[in-house]
Amino acid sequence: MAVAKQKLSVPFDYDKYLRKDKLPHIWCPGCGHGIVLKSLLRAIDNKELSKNDLCMVSGIGCSSRTPGYVDFNTLHTIHGRAFSFATGLKLAKPSLKMIIATGDGDAMAIGGNHFIHTCRRNIDMLIIVYSNAIYGMTGGQFSPTTPIGSIATTSRYGNVEPPFDICEMAKAAGATFVARGTAYHTQELERTFTEALGHKGTAVVEVIDSCPIYFGRMNKQRGASEMMENIEKNGTVSVKQVDKLPAEKTEGKLVRGILHRVEKPEYCEQYDKLIVAKATK
């Protein structure tokens, strides 16, 4: 499916959405997390969403520190459980526009069960997985998305575990919008977020992201720019090109773009339609 073309608004006033007095942020120089946030804020602006309705919930990790910097209703919870806190909030107050900021460790390891059940319910929320293939915050241990062979502080001999494909998992679990972007392709990411924010139901966007400090240093990608270059050249291929390219050019690469989009009944709406309607008859 093609990503809809949107007019990009340059220059852009990020201050409108940031808690400026909470800056500088905690992220290391060269970390991809801030880039992801910029694309998100532009997408929020494209959708003209109200800050009073926006609710950002996160778990624990470097990526999960995002809510502290945005001027919305913000909740920084416990490791892996952001989805469950957010489910309570959304069901209790459906007018909230939910965005989950989570990491590959937060969402796929400790929060894996909540992730799949959230997708299954198709409750209206945008889940952004900052996917850097490492536990950044705790100092570089391997995560459920670390590639086989990669070095981490707990896989000094190379990781033996096969990684999850987050998008496949989201789709299989029932998410009705699934996309993948990267911290390098920022304009495409903005468009993807814009589409995702317009979707009713559980939308999952995996963002291939970089942790130069731990993943990069341990895996011979010495600088932040080198990591970005790697994402650009070697890591991914656009969903628009994947069918046109020869197999050797797509082998081992992750596909970028909107990968899955279907219309299905949303949880809170179903709750009103099926449960409340019958209970109050």
Binding site: G88, L89, A92
Partner: peptide, 13 residues
Amino acid sequence: IASMAATIGGSLA
């Protein structure tokens, strides 16, 4: 775990 988390979410709403 999810139940306790959702309960807190409901209260914050």
